[in-house]
Design a protein around this nucleic acid. Structure first.
Length: 414
RNA sequence: GGAUAGAUGGCAGAGCUUGGUUUAAUGCACCGGUCUUGAAAACCGGCGAGGGUCAUACCUCCCAGGGUUCGAAUCCCUGUCUGUCCA
C-alpha cells in the first residue's frame, strides 16, 4: 500500500510516479479526494465525540451532586443520533478509500527504466557462456519423458492439466536441489524456516496478493484459507503486526515450500512441459530490513541467487525489469533468466524484488529507532524455482543420447 | 462433536462480582541520568499503538463484530483462537 500522505503533500511528483506504473489520472484523483473526504469525515466525528465524552463525564458528576440530568440527557441523546450518522459517513469514506488504495501498485524506484513490457527490460550482465552442442539440443519435456523423470499424463490423471508427477532420478534430483539451495542460502546468512502452505486472508493482504489477485489463488472451500502462491507470503507475514528492534535487522530468511497458482491470466502459454505448473516447488529468500539496509540486502539476494546458478554451472543473465514488467508490490525487481538451449532463449528462473515499505505498511511491520516506530522494508526473491532449475539442468547438460549429466555440487545430495 | 476456563500494553499480571479522573495498577524487560576507574547494585526519570496537530488539544484501540447505557476493559449476544476435561 502506498502512503496516501505523499499524494497530499506532494501531489504532482507522486502522481507522475504512479502513472509510470499505469495508474490512471482518474484513479489518482479519486484516491486524493477519497482521502480528503475521509479526513474531514473523521474530523467531524471526532469533534462531536469529544463533546459527547465531556457531557458524559458531567453526567456522572451531576448524579453525584444530586443535580438534575434531564437537560443533559436531552442534549446527549440528540448528539447520539448525529454521532451515529457521522460514524456511518466515516466508515463509508474508509471503505471508499480502501477500495481504491488496496488496488494501487507500488511506486517504482526513480531509476527503474520506463517501458511497456519485457522488451524494455535492461540487461545488467551475463554469467557463464551458453554451451555449444554438436547436435540439436532437445527441449526438456522430451528429455524428461525419455529419462523417465517426469510424467505429465499422470499429473492430469491425479489432478488436471498443468500438474505433473516427478519420479525416479527426477524426484531425487528435485530433493537434492532443494537441499542444496537451502544449505547454500544458510551459508549466506539466511535462516531456514518451514512454514504453513495455507494462509489466511490477512496474510495475503499483507503481501499484496489480495484483494487484487484473488482469481489467481486456490482457495480452500469454507475455510477462508488459501494455498500460498509463494513462500514470500508466510515468511514476510511472520512479522506482521510486530515492532522489531532495529538491532535485530536485517532479518534474512529462506524456506522451501510448494507454491500454488491458478495461472488465470496465462492462457495457452507454456502448456507443454513444466515451465508453468499449478503446483511447483520453490526455495525462497525473504528479508525484513531497515530503510537504510534494503538496497544492500537486495544486492546480496541477487548475488545469492546468481551465485547459486553459477555453482550449478547454469548460464544466465540478470535483467532489471522496466516499469511495465514490474509486479504489483515491487519498487524494483531484478530477474534472473537461465539459458535454455532447447528453447534457445533465456527464461525467468528467479525474481528478486524490493517492495520498500509497500508490504510493511499493509502488514504493519515496523522497527523501533530512536524511540520512533518506522515501517520496515521487505524484500523477496526466489532462490530458484526448483522445477525450472531441473529444466535448465536437463537442457544444458543433455548429451547426444538424451542422458543428462548432473552437476557435481549436487552429487552429495543424491 | 460435547463440556468448561480463558483472551488486557515486549513479557508476566491486576482490574471485570459493585459500569463513571482506568490508557489501564504492579513486577520484569527496555531507554536516559546519578553514583562508580568500569560494570553490577541502588536511586531518579522515561517507557503501548494508530490517527490528528507546527506543537498541543483531541479521537480510536483492553481478541473481533454487534447490543444495552448519558457513559463499557467491566453487563448481554455472536464469532475466532487458546488451555483443560469428556466421547
Amino acid at each position: 500500500m502506498i502512503d496516501v500522505k505523499l499524494l497530499q503533500k506532494n501531489f504532482d511528483e507522486t502522481a507522475t510516479a504512479l502513472m509510470r506504473k499505469k495508474v490512471s489520472a482518474e484513479t489518482i484523483a479519486e484516491l486524493k479526494s477519497a482521502n480528503e473526504t475521509l479526513k474531514s469525515a473523521k474530523q467531524a466525528y471526532e469533534t462531536l465525540q469529544a463533546k459527547q465524552n465531556e457531557l458524559s463525564k458531567l453526567f456522572g458528576q451531576y448524579k453525584k451532586e444530586g443535580k438534575s440530568t434531564d437537560e443533559l440527557k436531552a442534549e446527549v441523546d440528540a448528539n447520539k443520533v448525529t454521532l451515529g450518522e457521522l460514524l456511518d459517513a466515516q466508515r463509508a469514506a474508509e471503505e471508499a478509500l480502501d477500495a481504491i488504495i488496496m488496488r494501487v501498485p507500488n511506486i517504482p524506484d526513480a531509476d527503474v527504466p520506463d517501458g511497456e513490457d519485457e522488451e524494455s527490460n535492461v540487461e545488467l550482465r551475463k554469467v557463464l557462456t551458453p554451451p555449444i552442442f554438436s547436435f540439436t539440443p532437445k527441449e526438456h519435456w522430451e528429455l524428461a519423458e525419455q529419462n523417465g523423470w517426469i510424467d505429465f499424463e499422470k499429473g492430469v490423471k491425479l489432478a488436471k492439466s498443468r500438474f505433473s508427477v516427478v519420479g525416479g532420478m527426477g524426484a531425487r534430483l528435485e530433493r537434492a536441489l532443494i537441499n542444496f539451495m537451502l544449505d547454500f542460502n544458510r551459508e549466506r546468512g539466511f535462516e531456514e524456516y518451514s512454514v504453513p502452505m495455507l494462509v489466511n486472508r490477512r496474510a495475503l493482504e499483507g503481501t499484496g496478493q489480495l484483494p487484487k489477485f484473488e482469481e489467481d489463488l486456490f482457495k480452500v472451500e469454507e475455510e477462508e484459507l488459501y494455498l500460498i502462491p509463494t513462500a514470500e507470503v508466510p515468511l514476510t507475514n511472520l512479522f506482521q503486526d510486530e515492532i522489531l528492534a532495529s538491532a535485530d535487522l536485517p532479518i534474512k530468511m529462506t524456506g522451501y515450500t510448494s507454491c500454488f497458482r491458478k495461472e488465470a491470466g496465462s492462457g495457452g502459454r507454456d502448456v507443454r512441459g513444466m515451465i508453468r505448473q499449478h503446483q511447483f516447488h520453490k526455495v525462497e529468500l525473504v528479508a525484513i530490513t531497515t530503510q537504510d539496509q534494503s538496497d544492500t540486502v537486495f544486492d546480496e539476494m541477487v548475488a545469492c541467487a546468481s551465485d547459486l546458478l553459477a555453482a550449478l554451472g547454469l548460464p544466465h543473465r540478470l535483467v532489471t525489469l522496466c516499469t511495465g514488467d514490474l509486479g504489483f508490490g515491487a519498487a524494483r525487481t531484478v530477474d534472473l533468466e537461465v539459458w535454455l538451449p532447447g528453447q534457445n532463449t533465456y527464461r525467468e528462473i528467479s525474481s528478486v524484488s524490493n517492495t520498500r515499505d509497500f508490504q510493511a505498511r499493509r502488514a504493519k511491520i515496523r522497527y523501533k529507532e530512536d524511540g520512533k516506530n518506522i515501517l520496515a522494508h521487505t524484500l523477496n526473491g526466489s532462490s530458484l524455482a526448483v522445477g525450472r532449475t531441473m529444466i535448465a539442468i536437463m537442457e544444458n547438460f543433455q548429451q547426444e543420447d538424451g542422458s543428462i549429466i548432473i552437476p557435481d555440487v549436487l552429487q552429495k545430495y543424491l
